[in-house]
Each structure stands twice: as structure tokens, then as C-alpha cells.
């Protein structure tokens, strides 16, 4: 068995240890005897058909403009089609914003997104920086946020979770992230998946079920992951 992981703009959008998320999905597959193949999908590269799990990380402003342009048109449409067909996707920070309808900076033209998530983001006056803890359908998730974008979800959009500690999408409505079918987007990095193995395994299992709907993952020894999760939870509770 094999899982193919598509790392969108890995070279340009890898700002907060994002490669840890890709590594986590790949390693957790390998530890179960599943081959893992990571493909970087850069600017100008076509979107391969065989991707099971997509990852899209955060980037600096300069990178984000080039990436937004590259996603317009066929490539973005193919990405949306892959997710509609059941491919799993995790997008964080800049990647999350660019998969919404639009990002509106302070002093420049709006950056168009591809509307995979029904949301818009505007530049905000302050930067939200700190540990985050949310309650979600994957249990409590821990991470770290560092963003000034304020993301507003469209009506009826399911957030990834409810903020227990931190600011989340916009610091106002208590939501963090968004879910659209088999796609999840959020501001939490950390890296996110190594400390939240339930979410990592959901992405892996979801991606593989696209080909084999009855596929189920075998359990792993998560002693190290659980310890890291507990520390991050404690730090969020005590230091924000």
C-alpha cells in the first residue's frame, strides 16, 4: 500500500516548521508498513492526479503573491475537484487564507483565493501570537498561532473547532479554522500534526479511503506524541 502526499509550494510556503506536518503523515504511514511518497508541487507545476493527502503551509508576503497567482485558473480548479473527490487536505495560515475567497491587505489590491473554503480574510490591526488550544471533533488540539489576518467564515461553515485558549480566526467569534468536506484549514502551527496524532491519522485514513472505503489504520504507540500534546496544553493554559 502507498500514500502519496502533495506538498503545495513546499519551498516557498514553509514558514513555521510546516514540513513537520508532511513528515508526520509520511512517518505515521511508514510505521504501519504503508509506503509514503512526498511530492512537492511548485509554481508552474501541474497538479498530479494521484495525491491522497495535500498539505499547504504558510509563507511570507512576497511568496504569497506569486502562489496566489499560480493557483488561479486550472490548477485551483483541479485542487478543488480532488478534494470534492475525497482527497484529504490540511492548509495552515497563508495556505488557509489563499484557499478562501480572498485576502484583503491594508495597502494593496486584494489577493484572490480559490474559494475551496467559504471564507474571506482581511488584514487586521494587531498580530495574534501565542499558544492555542481548541475543542474539536478530533478532541482537544494544541498549536501556536502567529497571524494578523482576520478570517470570517461564511454562513453555515463548520469551524475546525472552538477556541479554548488563544484568538483563532478573528479574535471575536470564538472559532478557529474551517472544515469543508475532507479539507481542513486553520491558523495553528507548531508543527500541528506531530502533537495532534488524531488529526494526522484522520487525514491519512481519509486520503486512503478515497481508494479503499473500508480502509482502517492500525494503532501506534503514541507515548512521545501524547507527552508533547500534554506539555503544549499545559503551556497554553498557563502562558496563553
Amino acid at each position: 500500500m502507498r500514500v502519496t502526499i502533495g506538498w503545495l509550494y513546499g519551498r516557498k510556503m514553509n514558514i513555521y516548521g510546516d514540513r513537520g506536518n508532511v513528515q508526520t503523515v509520511a512517518q505515521r504511514a511508514r510505521w504501519r508498513g504503508i509506503d509514503a511518497d512526498v511530492r512537492e508541487i511548485g509554481i508552474g507545476d501541474p497538479l498530479p492526479d494521484e495525491i491522497d493527502v495535500f498539505f499547504f503551509g504558510g509563507g511570507q508576503d512576497q511568496s504569497q503573491v506569486a502562489v496566489a497567482r499560480d493557483l488561479q485558473g486550472e490548477k485551483g480548479e483541479r485542487l478543488k475537484a480532488a478534494v470534492a473527490d475525497g482527497a484529504a487536505l490540511l492548509a495552515i495560515c497563508g495556505g488557509y487564507q489563499l484557499l478562501g475567497h480572498e485576502y484583503r491587505p491594508h495597502d494593496a489590491e486584494p489577493l484572490p483565493g480559490i474559494g475551496l473554503f467559504d471564507l474571506v480574510t482581511e488584514a487586521g490591526p494587531e498580530r495574534f501570537i501565542g499558544n492555542v488550544l481548541i475543542g474539536s471533533r478530533w478532541g482537544e488540539l494544541v498549536g501556536f498561532e502567529n497571524h494578523s489576518g482576520l478570517t470570517h467564515l461564511g454562513p453555515g461553515v463548520e469551524p475546525m473547532g472552538k477556541v479554548l485558549v488563544g484568538r483563532g480566526n478573528n479574535g471575536q467569534d470564538g472559532t478557529e479554522g474551517a472544515i469543508a468536506g475532507t479539507a481542513v484549514g486553520c491558523y495553528m502551527h507548531g508543527a500541528l500534526l506531530p502533537k495532534n496524532p488524531t488529526l494526522a491519522d484522520w487525514l491519512l485514513e481519509t486520503g486512503l479511503r478515497r481508494r479503499d472505503p473500508s480502509f482502517t489504520l492500525s494503532p501506534l504507540d503514541d507515548t512521545f506524541e501524547t507527552a508533547a500534546h500534554a506539555t503544549a496544553r499545559e503551556r497554553a493554559r498557563t502562558t496563553r
Partner: peptide, 9 residues
């Protein structure tokens, strides 16, 4: 640095 995500780089 309060953010330890750098360990992944």
C-alpha cells in the same frame, strides 16, 4: 522564542 515550531526546521 515561545513558538517551538522551529525545531521542525
Amino acid at each position: 522564542g515561545r513558538d517551538v515550531s522551529w525545531l521542525w526546521d
